[in-house]
Design a protein around this nucleic acid. Sequence first.
DNA 1: GATTTTGTCTAGTGAGTTGCTCAAGAATTC
DNA 2: GAATTCTTGAGCAACTCACTAGACAAAATC
Lengths: 153, 153
Amino acid sequence: MKFSKKSEYGLRALLELCETYGGRVLQRHEIAERQNIPVEFLEQILLALKRAGLLASRRGIRGGYSLIKSPEEITLGQVIRILDGPLAPISCVSRTAYQKCSDCPYATKASCPLQEAMGEVRDAIANILDHYTLSRFALSKQAEGSYAHHKRS
Amino acid sequence: MKFSKKSEYGLRALLELCETYGGRVLQRHEIAERQNIPVEFLEQILLALKRAGLLASRRGIRGGYSLIKSPEEITLGQVIRILDGPLAPISCVSRTAYQKCSDCPYATKASCPLQEAMGEVRDAIANILDHYTLSRFALSKQAEGSYAHHKRS
DNA sequence: GATTTTGTCTAGTGAGTTGCTCAAGAATTC
DNA sequence: GAATTCTTGAGCAACTCACTAGACAAAATC
C-alpha cells in the first residue's frame, strides 16, 4: 500500500517547477540536483508529465522544462494517477480503471463486503488528493527557513 | 497503491470464520472452496493470522481454524497490517513503521511538503480501516440474497 | 553548417516482491 | 497405528520497481 518513487520524485520535481512557473525553464539536471533524484530516471517522469499535458519542454542549448498549467489547477491526485496509476486500493472499486474481479465469489452478487470497505477508502484518498493543489503543496516548502525566497523579487 | 491478494484473501477468509465464530472450526479447504482461494496460499495467510493472535487452530482429524477474538474487536486495519505491512503511503509518515527518508532534501528540514500531504492520506486511511470492524464487514455479506442465513437457527 | 547542448525514445537490467506450489514433518483423532 | 489435518520451510515463475544506457532529434550558438 505504498506510492512509488516515481510519484514521489514527480511531486518533488513539480515543487521546483512551481517556483519558476511563468518564468524561466528548468533543466533536468537542475531539478535532479536540487531534489536529489537520479537524472535519467527523472527524465522519464518529466516526459510522462509532459505527455499528460502538465509540462512543456524545449530542446537545445537553452532548453528545459516548464509548467504550462497553473499550480492552482493541478492536484496531487492527477499527478499520482499519471505516474502510479489509479488510486483505488483494489481495482474493483476504481472509478478511473474499474475491473471486475474474476475470482471473487461476490462478483456476481448485489453487494461485496470488500467493495464496500475499499470503496470508502478509495473515496477518502481521492477526496484528499483530488483537492490538494500544487500551490498548496508548494506552500509547505516555503515554510522552512533555509530555503527562504523573496517571491517575485 | 494497491492492497495485495494476501490482504484480500485474508479478509475474505475471515468473513467465513466470522460466521462460525463461537461454533465449529473451519478447515482450510472449506474456506478455500467457498471463497475461491488457492488452498496452499490460503494456508500461509491463516498461519500469519494465527501468529498474530486472531485465530486458533487444531490439528488432526477434527481440526481446523477458528476466530478467537470477537469480530467486534478486530478491525480491517489490524488484518491488513498483519498481511500487508503498514498502511502509510510513504514510510516517512508511518506511525507503525516510521523510517526517515534518506534521499529527500527535506528530511533535515522542519517541514516536508510530501510528509504533510501523505500524512493526511495516512490518517484518512487509518481512520477508516482502524474503525471498520469485522462484524460490520460481515454485515454486507448477509445483505445479498443467495447466501441468506438464519442466524443461530 | 557544424558543433554543442539540450530533450526524446526505446530497450535493458538487477534486485526485490507477489502469488503460488511442493514436500516433509508433527499433532490429533479414531 | 493409520488417517487426517495443521506446520514449516523451501522453491519458483512472473512481474514490478528503480534505475541505466545509448542512439537519436531539435535548437542555439559559433
